[in-house]
Amino acid sequence: MKRFFQHLYDARVWIISQFILTAFFIFLAWLAYPETFTVLILVMVLMSGLLLLVPIGYLMRKEKVVQKAFRIFLAEPELENEQYLARFVSKSNSKLIQQLGETLREKEDRLTQQNLEVSDYETYIEEWVHEIKKPLSLLTLILDNRSDEMSALVRQRTTHARNEIQNDVEKILYFSRLRTVHRDYLFERVALRAVFEEAIAENASLIAESDLTISIEGNDISVTSDRRSLLFILAQLIHNSAKYAGKGAHLSVRIEEKEAIIVTFHDNGPGISARDLPFIFDKGFTGGRAKATGMGLYLAQRIATDLNIQLVAETEEGLRMSLVIPK
Rank of each mutant, 00 (worst) to 15 (best):
V118F: 14
V190K: 03
D148K: 15
R227P: 01
V45Q: 04
L100I: 03
G294C: 08
V195P: 14
L319F: 05
F285E: 10
I272D: 11
E198R: 12
F285K: 11
E188H: 10
E82S: 07
N308F: 00
L46A: 06
G57L: 13
V13T: 12
R320L: 07
S225G: 02
I262M: 14
R302F: 00
L21Q: 07
I272V: 12
Q166C: 09
G218W: 12
F25S: 02
N240Y: 01
S252E: 14
R155C: 08
D226V: 00
Q67G: 03
R162P: 08
E102C: 02
K134E: 05
A23K: 03
T315C: 02
L50H: 07
N167L: 07
S241T: 08
D220G: 02
L136D: 10
Y185C: 01
R193S: 12
A11W: 13
V129L: 13
T315M: 04
R275W: 04
V66K: 01
E106S: 13
Q98N: 09
S17R: 12
E197S: 13
P270D: 09
R302A: 01
I221P: 03
E149N: 12
Y121C: 07
L138N: 10
I56P: 09
G284S: 07
D211G: 04
Q18T: 06
L104W: 08
H266I: 00
Q83Y: 01
L51V: 00
E126V: 04
D10I: 10
V223C: 01
Q99D: 12
N167E: 11
F25Y: 09
